[in-house]
Amino acid sequence: MFWHLYLPIAGSSINVLLIFSLGILVGLLSGIFGVGGGFLMTPLLIMIGVPPTVAAASDSNQIVGASTSGTLAHYRLGNVDFKMGILLLIGGVIGGTVGVQIIKILRAVGNANFLIQITYVLMLGFVGSYMFWESLQALRKKKVAPEPAVAKESRYARMLSKLPWQTNFETSGVRLSVLMPLGLGVFVGILAAIMGVGGGFIMVPVMVYLLRMPMHVVVGTSLFQILFTCVNVTILQAYSNHTVDFVLALLLLLGSTLGAQFGAKISKKLGGDQLKILLASIVLLVMVKMLLSLLLTPDIMVAYKGGH
């Protein structure tokens, strides 16, 4: 027989095995790609019958466990750039605060949700396609010798080298201005706050393409940063909205901490470009799913207020 547990905050009961397997799946994804996995978990939980706000908050509780496990595993593989991570994090906190204010203004103006969802779909589409195309080119490099984008890239590199406060980031093997990770942290923080997602999907491409970090270090550093973001979100949600269901989170993190360990090992085995192309495919899938939900006529014409 299936074993059920009652979730006190969600106010419903749930199949333990199902939640455990969901946890493993999402933990694998975060260990491999350095994303939180909220994009997958939150809608799945809502489908099982967990209220949207509880799903999102409990998921961030779970991500704390998964990213601790993943960060540790990647740290042992030498894949976490703490210096870069902390700078991005500081930027992210500033950006998050600014982002919340921007949402308030957008909401007051009206039609904010429309703008947010369209921006999100467009951005996922753009980032996913670019990443997919770029890593496909890289994988075929042996056949296609010339790189057409070199001139443009070097202009970007020249611009980077003119910024003040240049520092070495040893783990990533890059030399950059401190302003770069700080500024990009703010940018991602704003976007994440506005779109109500963790930001892993935006942060990973930003680190790969704008900070020029090697893919493996990106995964570890992203997890390190997600850990702190989700600690913050979990405590805030528990304190102000009472939406963290610890029973649900515990079941999820039993699976996800395990998954994250295996994920880190798989990540190590894959090449950087293979990782990128896989992540790009997932980003594109999420984009298509969101687009479909916007285009298809819903079964029920009303929804509870409070979800994303």
Partner: peptide, 12 residues
């Protein structure tokens, strides 16, 4: 909730 989650991650 966060401490237990971190502990679970470290333990794993």
């Amino acid at each position: 909730a966060t401490i237990i989650a971190i502990a679970a991650g470290l333990l794993m």
